[in-house]
Design a protein around this nucleic acid. Structure first.
Lengths: 125, 125, 125, 125
DNA sequence: GTGGTCTAGACCACG
DNA sequence: GTGGTCTAGACCACC
């Protein structure tokens, strides 16, 4: 599913990230479908699990996949599993807000950004 | 300069990130001043260099520091920092809000989360 | 005389090499004129002397400058530039041929490789 | 395992290269056996790791050893050694010939240089 | 079994 | 000497 190019000057984990982003973008990996486990993929590619882990972490940070400890990693979907995703959103927002506060971003500015998104096309939920 | 709390449930690298964010925010670490090298700090704290490396990478991603290979890691200039950091926060929040909207999280729920943080200890900025 | 761009993704020593090649090509640095000393230029640019040294070594290897121990580095005369580069090629080839001989590579095999290059597109010089 | 001679006029890294070439040639270092790590050997010899690094790089370039990031450096198998070295010679010669052609060196001149070496002491292989 | 964190230590690019 | 990437193998929390 994934082919590494050792002549490529990019680090391996970046190559892995790129490949998965493409596979997800091209809908080869459908939403909610499970990615190979960290250890399995590492074995298949004959590389270290840590390298895959790093790639998956970054893919999660970039919002392409989500990981559930003890279960696996999955492509982010638009429809179901609201609870899990909403929890992640809540956690991220909490973290982000703390940073914003420290950085002197006013609450008002945050609210404006949120309004921008929620009020697009006039539909306020 | 930094004290780790092994009873803390947060991973070590997050503690390191937090401490440095505070030191920079409180201006104890002035702009452009050099952070301890990855290896030195790891030795001081008796932890693995990789853990420090991970913390520094995240600090760089969050716009607090910048690293030059072969030279060291440095605090971002205050003048640039605020703008750089606020831009990232804005981008992240925008992305997060879009996801939230798609996921059916109400604007009200987001605002509650933000309020929680900003109203801690009664100081609203 | 030289300005570094830290936002440039190329390593510093490559930037230095490039700048000097340009200065020499544009005749801003006349033939036989002396380049700044390794230490001086390093101080001026606030970078490590090793970096300048590396750049100068490469410029010498490429036949643009020549260095005299204890005296300095100088621009190769335009008229000699060709000769200097050819001398380097001659020296390298001599060294390589000796290795080849030791390794049991036949003269015939070497000639075949050379023929390959020289006979490309049928133009034999 | 290796003893440096500071009275020797050759640079240290060349001495290191020479020693290892001998050890490998004499089969003291068996095929696929691991060389000491760059840092360890540097510590043992009380020299800078970069010097060892340089020696190892050159040994790899010459086809005596191979290095795997994060794992170590290893002696090339005897059966592969000859092929590896000949490949390097071929690659180097190809690169050199291209340069020569561009610089206006005639094929005849190259051949003369090769003849010089191969016809030394009347033994032509 | 899965992901997440951490240690120990390696080579590599750069200064 | 400094940051960056990677390997190997460990322990933990979760399911």
């Amino acid at each position: 599913m994934i082919i590494l190019d050792y002549k490529d000057r990019r680090p391996i984990y970046e190559q892995v990230i790129g490949k998965f982003q493409d596979l997800i973008a091209c809908d080869v990996l459908k939403e909610d479908s499970q990615l190979p486990s960290v250890r399995n993929l590492a074995m298949d590619l004959s590389i270290n699990p840590n390298t895959i882990q790093r790639a998956y972490s970054e893919l999660e940070r970039r919002g392409f996949i989500y990981s559930i400890k003890g279960k696996g990693s999955f492509v982010v979907e638009n429809s179901n599993m609201k609870a899990a995703k909403q929890k992640r959103i809540y956690d991220d927002l909490q973290k982000l807000t703390k940073e914003a506060k420290v950085m002197g971003v006013t609450k008002k500015e945050l609210l404006e950004t949120i309004d921008e998104i929620y009020d697009e096309r006039g539909d306020e939920r």
